[in-house]
Nucleic acid binder design. Structure first.
Length: 502
DNA sequence: AAAAAAC
């Protein structure tokens, strides 16, 4: 099967060919002919299945007839997050090189002015997140009465995010006669109801089960105590990762994204961050830096869990185990894409064990433990949230390592031989094909190399003076708000939730 | 339990 057989226009086919694609994915092969024929499509597909091209390509073909009028876009694509919207815009730009179509991106967090100019000029393609779209619509700056094709992408995620009322409002603002392309990874009852209301006799296309995890992803669990010890566990995993290229690190909370990001930087890692409380420019900049390889680590909230298509992510680390099993599937799906192999490792504390069971049930398989010690052996209950008191067990075993890292952190502020520091990359391991499955050997082999390297770098670079590092306080200054924060702000807000009587 | 999304 080739793209030529799907009925796409010559202009689109040329752009597809220029991008180097020859064979359509299953969702593309099945959806494109129906989309071109004007049918409503209900696509049940995970991200990473080629879903975006499944609607951008036929839309571009169909838009070749007709032109946009001022403030009346011809097509509308709704996305749950700003990054996804921007990603879809890129897809239209890539495959629309031979067209003279106006593309507008309507997302929050950026100024109105540019967006308004584009809308006023007339947009053939409008890609939007619901909030900003409704804002424009309510201000009378945008008319949805000329919409010919409506795309609702990631519908189940829109549901999770509480967007369904907005989606319903928008569906009522567009003409009844439009064509609707509707995509969702799963079909919960609310989504089914939505499709029954807003789709007309749709073609139903289902490609991959939502809960299936790509077989190209090697998954593993590593037991850890909480607090600073957990960050130490992560650093060890990054350092010892075999075939490491880059990694996405997920935290459950935005606050922890910021804390971990600072911690990694302090330890000399080349890391960026991405979460929804960052301003939009910083979000875009972080993502770009990661895509181009300027940073090889990015610490994220679940804003990045779904849909983001970053080619060649070698590792995903769940710094926190997601509390929703579905999120696990989405997170680890950032690696192992397009037939490439990937590694996904989750750091598990005692409190996470029940979530692991749910995840294993969802993906219908056991995930291997990669750590020698089990959770039961770790002194989890005694592990501190605050940086003041260390956990005994896990800590003392790795103390030499921790000291090592402090040296690295100090040296990292200085430029090394005119290059930006890229510690994780420079530390890339000699091939160890099954390292992820044989972690103990990999760790031993890796450790000597790391230590040798670190020692050299520490000598070569000027050392920034800091209080003598003790393994106990290696992370003490990291609070996510700068180093000078009153002590009372560092204390956990709530009483320790893990403490249960008895 | 938290994240995301409008000002």
């Amino acid at each position: 099967m080739t793209f030529n057989e799907l009925g796409l226009s010559e202009k689109v086919l040329q752009a597809v060919e220029a991008s180097g694609y020859k064979t359509p994915t299953p969702i593309q092969a099945q959806a494109i002919p129906h989309a071109l024929a004007g049918r409503d499509v209900l696509g049940i597909a995970q991200t990473g299945t080629g879903k975006t091209a499944a609607f951008t390509l036929p839309m571009l073909s169909r838009l070749e007839q007709g032109r946009a009028r001022a403030r009346m876009p011809r097509t509308l694509i709704l996305e749950p997050t700003r990054e996804l919207a921007a990603q879809v815009e890129e897809s239209f730009i890539r495959y629309g090189v031979n067209h003279k179509l106006n593309v507008a991106l309507l997302i929050g967090g950026v100024s109105f002015a540019d967006q308004e100019t584009k809308i006023t000029r007339g947009a053939d393609i409008l890609i939007a997140t619901p909030g900003r779209l409704l804002d424009f619509s309510e201000r009378g700056k945008l008319l949805l009465t000329g919409i010919e094709i409506l795309v609702i992408d990631e519908a189940d995620r829109m549901l999770d995010m509480g967007f369904i009322p907005d989606i319903e409002r928008i569906c009522k603002l567009v003409p009844f006669t439009r064509q609707t392309l509707f995509f969702s990874a799963t079909m919960p009852p609310e989504i089914t109801r939505l499709t029954e209301t807003f789709l007309h006799n749709p073609v139903r296309i289902e490609v991959a089960r939502a809960a299936s995890t790509a077989i190209t992803i090697v998954q593993g669990l590593v037991a850890s105590a909480t607090g600073p010890a957990k960050r130490e566990t992560l650093r060890r995993l990054i350092r010892d990762a075999a075939d490491f290229k880059n990694a996405i690190i997920f935290c459950n909370r935005k606050r922890d994204v910021a804390v971990l990001h600072k911690s990694l930087q302090k330890h000399g890692f080349n890391a960026g961050a991405l979460h929804g409380d960052m301003d939009q420019r910083a979000r875009m900049a972080s993502l770009d830096a990661f895509k181009t390889g300027d940073v090889d680590l990015i610490v994220c909230s679940d804003v990045a869990a779904r849909g983001l298509d970053i080619p060649d992510v070698s590792h995903v680390f769940n710094f926190d185990v997601p509390t929703h099993a579905e999120d696990y599937v989405h997170r680890i799906g950032r690696t192992g894409r397009a037939g490439k192999s990937g590694v996904a490792i989750s750091i598990v504390t005692r409190a996470d064990q029940k979530h692991i069971l749910e995840i294993e049930r969802l993906i219908a398989r056991k995930i291997d433990w990669l750590s020698k010690e089990t959770i039961a052996e770790l002194d989890v209950e005694d592990a501190p949230e605050a940086p003041s008191s260390p956990s005994k067990g896990a800590r003392s075993r790795r103390a030499p390592h921790a000291r090592d890292e402090n040296k690295r952190a100090e040296s990292s502020d200085a430029p090394q031989r005119g290059e930006r520091p890229a510690p994780t990359r420079s530390r890339r391991r000699a091939e160890h094909p099954h390292a992820a499955l044989a972690p103990v050997e990999a760790l031993t082999e890796a450790k000597t190399a790391t230590q040798a390297k670190t020692a050299t770098e520490a000598k070569a670079a000027p050392v920034r003076r800091r209080p003598a590092p003790r393994p106990d306080d290696d992370d003490a200054p990291v609070v996510g708000m700068g180093d000078h924060v009153p002590m009372f702000l560092r204390r956990p807000v709530k009483a320790k939730p893990t403490k249960v009587a008895g």
